[in-house]
Design a protein around this nucleic acid. Sequence first.
DNA 1: GCCAACGTTGGC
DNA 2: GCCAACGTTGGC
Length: 140
Amino acid sequence: MARAQHWLLKSEPFKYSWSQLMTDGKTHWDGVRNYEARNNLRAMTVGDLCLFYHSNEGKEIVGVAEVVRAAYPDPSSKDDWSCVDVSPVVPFTAPVSLDAIRNRKALAAMQMLTRNRLSVTRVTAAEFRTLLKMGETALP
DNA sequence: GCCAACGTTGGC
DNA sequence: GCCAACGTTGGC
């Protein structure tokens, strides 16, 4: 398998939570209405790993999901937007809070911090490894 | 619930 | 093509 890319997906748990994703087994990541986020969605390929972050309520990374379908036209819009399908991979044993991320030097450059309103951001392989470790979680 | 940040829109 | 107004997001 080609080396996977890593991403971070934000969702307000009210709107769509990690546990909902676990229940559903798979979801359409639609509704993105920001060009930069859309470009990130379009750059995703099947097998890419996504950190799942609860914004607003919780403010922590709670699990890892996987892209199971690459970008296709968002059915919730007739304009030129995209969405992908994701499935859960593994929940974090220890959710990683926004504070913990900020306090970790190795994560200071994370796009989720520098572009704080972007709902789909890139994560480097090193950042991903660090976060997995902080979450006390290993990939299956 | 408020406010700051910032992307998008629309008037010029 | 600039820039002010507006809307949305997300942290607090």
